[in-house]
Nucleic acid binder design. Structure first.
Lengths: 100, 100
DNA sequence: TCGATAGGCAAGTCTCCACTTGCATGCAAG
DNA sequence: CTTGCATGCAAGTGGAGACTTGCCTATCGA
């Protein structure tokens, strides 16, 4: 039941604060295994977000530290995949009261 | 399927940003119907958070705008209750992939 | 009515972080 | 090996918001 705590890991709430990071998660929810440039172009076209490559790279680093995305290096490309598992911390912390 | 959009409503991610606001939600998850002073003392004793009354009041206003707490005025007291319903937006936006 | 309690409003400060700019690294194709 | 592409590292800047201070309103008890 206990989630593994990685040292120096950013908590998911810090990661979810920036709207740009949530947009990146949206883009990855639509399609996994995207590279940095693919994400940049997708944010520009689909989410009306024009950010520099470095900004997105920093966002991906934060999301990686929070465990919300996973990076796989292959040659000169780095593919990013969404990991929704850490999000389960939220309903665990504040359980739903719909049927109370 | 569509959630009612209240005008000028803060989204829940902005509300979840501040650690103090998450601590307030923790305190309300333990016991509902708490007043401002009760919350202040509880944060001080249980969460090692010494904030001024005004700070907590501002946090409660943000949580109220996000729909995460509900305020009920009774005489000179205002009782605060946690509402977890808006949190369902999160797994709806990024569905769990455990059984994919 | 007067003091005490519970809370609200408004403005100021200051820290943090999102974003940029600039430069460096590594792989790949010709 | 050299040019180009994909990415990383580091420092600087600007703005948002978390928190405080100060003052005001309202309700309850004596």
């Amino acid at each position: 039941m206990r989630l593994p705590i990685v040292e120096g890991m950013t908590d998911i709430f810090d990661a979810l604060t920036a709207p740009a990071r949530r947009a990146i998660m949206d883009a990855l929810a639509q399609r996994d295994e995207q590279t940095l440039f693919e994400l940049m172009n997708r944010l520009r076209s689909d989410h009306a977000l024009t950010l520099t490559r470095q900004a997105i790279s920093q966002h991906l680093a934060v999301l990686d530290e929070a465990g919300l995305v996973e990076r796989r290096r292959e040659g000169r490309y780095t593919f990013h995949t969404l990991n929704t598992a850490p999000l389960r911390e939220i309903p665990q912390r504040w359980p739903d009261r719909s049927t109370s």
